[in-house]
Design a protein around this nucleic acid. Structure first.
Length: 211
DNA sequence: ATTTTCAAT
């Protein structure tokens, strides 16, 4: 049950885990791995975390790793790994994703998140910042993303039915994510200004000395 | 050691 490859996701599972107004105690992850130049997935599926053992991201990375080790010719091509995940990765999983990307530097990660996982936890915040700074596309899922995820992984014949307050929650979560990610920028700007002013100060004091 | 939303009842 933890991992399902090349199988459609049951509709109920999609709605209960991706609904961003409902609390859940597990994580659902849908993914599609494709050559960046093509639209067809080489590998796709969905997975849950295995309770008390591994987060969903770990299972994903193991799955993708084994795909590339079984198909070594593919490992040299440009790939995109699209991820739709009900909870944002914790700090450790962020690092695992970053390590994975460094190992396979031809894979671009596109991560879409339904709900933030302990967003007040500073370690998780730092993890998300590192992920973004490593070049991963990272955003909260909006109505179109849920609809797309439903179309791709659940049912192409049926229409996605948005739940109540979907847009509100997306707004709140997006604002929170934006705040978390911007903390980096604010810090960096502060630092660069500090260095800038220090530089000014140093050079002006040297000028003063020479006079 | 710091939460309880990647459970346990």
């Amino acid at each position: 049950m933890a991992l399902c490859l090349k199988k459609r996701l049951p509709e109920n599972n999609f709605y209960t885990e991706f609904n961003n107004t409902i609390r859940s105690f597990k994580t659902l992850l849908c993914f599609g791995l494709s050559q960046s130049s093509k639209k067809i997935w080489s590998l796709w599926g969905y997975m849950y975390n295995s309770p008390k053992k591994s987060h969903a991201e770990r299972i994903l990375l193991q799955t993708v790793e084994s795909f590339f080790s079984e198909n070594p010719a593919e490992a040299i091509k440009q790939y995109t790994l699209a991820i739709y995940i009900s909870f944002s990765p914790c700090s450790k999983c962020c690092d695992s994703l970053i390590d994975f990307m460094r190992l396979h530097n031809r894979i671009h990660l596109d991560v879409r998140i339904s709900k933030l996982y302990f967003p007040q936890n500073s370690l998780n915040q730092e993890g998300l910042k590192r992920l973004r700074l490593s070049g991963v596309s990272l955003r909260m899922m909006d109505r179109d993303d849920f609809s797309e995820c439903f179309y791709l992984f659940v049912n192409q014949q049926k229409l996605f039915i948005p739940w109540c307050d979907l847009e509100n929650e997306t707004k709140k979560y997006s604002a929170a994510l934006c705040y978390i990610l911007n903390q980096v920028l604010v810090l960096e700007i502060c630092y660069s200004h500090t260095y800038f002013f220090l530089g000014q100060w140093e050079s002006s004091s040297k000028l003063g000395e020479s006079r």
